[in-house]
Design a protein around this nucleic acid. Sequence first.
DNA 1: AAATTAATTAATCAGATGATTAAAATTGTT
DNA 2: AACAATTTTAATCATCTGATTAATTAATTT
Lengths: 200, 200
Amino acid sequence: MSKKDTNTEDKILKAANKVFTQKGFAATRTRDIAAEAGINLALLNYYFRSKKKLFDIVMLENLKKFLVVNLKDIFNNEKLSINQKVQEVVSKYTILLKSNPDLPIFILNEIKNNPQQLAQNLGAREIIFQSHFFKQLQSQTTVKISPKQVIINILGLTLFPFIAKPLIKNIMDMDSEDFDDFVDERNHLIPIWIDAILKE
Amino acid sequence: MSKKDTNTEDKILKAANKVFTQKGFAATRTRDIAAEAGINLALLNYYFRSKKKLFDIVMLENLKKFLVVNLKDIFNNEKLSINQKVQEVVSKYTILLKSNPDLPIFILNEIKNNPQQLAQNLGAREIIFQSHFFKQLQSQTTVKISPKQVIINILGLTLFPFIAKPLIKNIMDMDSEDFDDFVDERNHLIPIWIDAILKE
DNA sequence: AAATTAATTAATCAGATGATTAAAATTGTT
DNA sequence: AACAATTTTAATCATCTGATTAATTAATTT
């Protein structure tokens, strides 16, 4: 490892990301972040001014990770069919959430507390509603089902198991391996289900 | 109104339910509960000993509301077909969540922090896996799709919009009326979609 | 090397927060 | 009414928590 393998600022950011996503803003203590980062508490305020400012940075990173990276390129790839796009979206989210299980609850939970400011800056609205995918759905879907409903179906079917992971593992008596198999199976099936829904 | 329209204990419980479900355990101040209930802070500890004990009571009530009330009777009603059961479940949850929008995040978020103790006491496992509905699914579903997947599909399609409500309203530029229309439409469509999935 | 700037530390502050206490007020009992 | 038990209140405690400060150490510049 080089001397500056990770500088203090990055160590704090990494630790903050871990603790914030795991426990949420209110339950997080700045001392926990400092301990996790292995630095003096005062350095947190030295580099980031306040807990809230540090949180905002972490949240923005995660929002980008969650909303943009996954959707933008897929939704606008004109070479992909509807079904291929669904496959890509489900697969990307399944991979992302298998290694970031706390991401959905973290984001949804904290967005609830900040009704406005978040998310619109990321251009999520445009990414979705002006996308090639949305136009494909508009020209394909029947009067029974709107593109908005389809998109919520894709996201609901894909994200819900991760959001409800602790509950599902408990009630369905799954260990972590069972759960991974379960979402892998869904990764394969959801595009088929969406296809069935669109043909309905 | 009678003199004892609501006694102190109930006032505290009602207020605690409101504040806890809205803000979660960590972000809730006992002083906020006292203020919401219009009582002296000390009465909270007088009646419920501690913030945590009060929270546990509120959480148990909400878990029951969320898990048992909705599912138990429907899942075991032998007179209902699969499709009728799906209609009932979706409809009951849609009604419940329209008047309790914070319920899903509240429960899922706090279950995450209590991996074990919760939920198993409610017998949710038995309610689902020993239900008439589960057996119906077992005899109907193909090799492609297990009853577990179907149940998660029903719950995901139904609950996800409420879980992601702030995000959806923001990104899809909906007001509260739009959102209600949106979930009402889903209430009608989800049973049809589940049917399509089962026939797939 | 000296001087300047940046980074780090230990100690501390001020306000928030869950909880307790002792006294006062209310209600119930004899 | 007198007494006892219960409920309510205001004040206070002890601890937690985000943030700051002043001093120290390390790095950079001149």
